[in-house]
């Protein structure tokens, strides 16, 4: 058996079947997936949340995670941010020929471990193999279905003046951990990606309060972009305080060196919540008891004036606008 994935693994023929039955089912098996019909048949009643995302992270293994864990967490988190309980995922692979089987196995094991942690099932999937150069080692798409419990109404457009802004932990960990591995830039850091499924944390928050108005995970574009999105959608302004936003020393140091702003660096295991002021402390206390919310803090407040604007009180006591990320953050010259 070849130690690499070759074009024939995507042909639909014998090798393809072998890959699916041995490698994929071997790693991910559950009764729904094992039926191998053309579609998974699911029994659900209630309001469904449905989302999809593609994962093209480079490198595919990085400190604190890999593309497989990311593909599960990203989609699970998108469901959780609508207040849904994630149930089922689809999993589609686009593999560049030549990928090491060992790497594929590692990624599948990581997907299995992460979906178990998030308590979701992979119920359908697909594999394509493309010529060398047509993809970059491995791309993954996942779609997810979740059920929204009765009485839960969480949306980026529901933030209200007076709401407290709660951030679940330090920002920028994922972006800097990945950047530290990039070709031509590798610097050593003990930092790992924060990549994690947040549905457990969200479930506990919802149990603690019926008045969580908006939830979002600040992934690409970072915290600044997420807050701008919510401010625009909810037609409110958001005022945050620089001093209250937790940033690890490693992240701050790397950002200083590279000319980046942690507010714009990606996270994969953090959320921001807009919570009615009366419930904020209760939610915060509950979050801090969860492994993924230990460093949660209230970083600001929603206000009625200047809809769409995010303003930050700087450490030295002045104020400035925090805009959305524009383009790709590029390191500076001097």
């Amino acid at each position: 058996m070849s130690d690499r994935i070759i074009m024939a693994h995507g042909s639909g023929g014998k090798l393809a079947h072998e890959l699916i039955e041995k490698t994929f089912l071997g790693a991910l098996s559950n009764p729904l997936l094992a039926r191998l019909d053309d579609s998974a048949v699911l029994d659900c009643k209630g309001r469904l949340a449905f989302t999809t995302d593609s994962y093209v992270v480079k490198p595919i293994f990085f400190p604190g995670g890999d593309i497989g864990r990311l593909a599960v967490c990203g989609t699970v988190n998108d469901l959780a941010m609508s207040g849904a309980v994630p149930l089922y995922l689809s999993l589609a692979f686009i593999i560049e020929e030549g990928l090491l089987r060992d790497d594929l196995n590692r990624i599948l094991a990581s997907i299995q471990a992460t979906s178990r942690e998030a308590d979701v099932q992979i119920v359908t999937g697909d594999t394509k193999v493309v010529d060398r150069g047509s993809a970059d080692r491995l791309f993954i798409n996942t779609a997810g279905l979740g059920l929204i419990p009765d009485g839960v109404d969480i949306s980026g457009s529901n933030a209200r003046p007076g709401d407290k802004v709660i951030l679940s932990g330090t920002i920028g960990d994922h972006g800097i951990a990945v950047l530290s591995q990039r070709e031509g830039l590798s610097f050593s850091t003990a930092l790992g990606s924060d990549c994690a499924p947040l549905n457990g944390l969200v479930a506990e928050m919802i149990r603690a309060s019926q008045r969580i108005h908006a939830l979002r995970d600040p992934t690409r574009g970072g915290l600044a972009t997420t807050l701008n999105e919510i401010a625009a959608q909810s037609k409110v302004s958001i005022r945050i305080e620089e001093e209250k936003i937790p940033v690890r020393d490693e992240v701050r140091g790397a950002c200083e060196m590279l000319g980046l702003d942690p507010l714009y660096v990606a996270n994969e295991g953090k959320l921001v919540a807009m919570v009615a002021p009366g419930d904020a402390e209760v939610v915060l206390a509950r979050m801090r008891r969860n492994a993924y919310g230990r460093e949660a803090s209230i970083i600001g407040e929603v206000q009625p004036d200047h809809p769409g604007r995010v303003v930050m009180k700087t450490r030295i006591g002045a104020s400035r606008i925090v805009d959305m990320l524009v383009g790709d953050p590029l390191p500076r010259i001097c």
Binding site: T314, R315, I316, G317, A318, S319, R320, C334
Partner: peptide, 15 residues
Amino acid sequence: GGHTVTIMKHGIRQL
């Protein structure tokens, strides 16, 4: 330009 950024980013002019 680096100073301009520091001044604007931290809101030094307002102070």
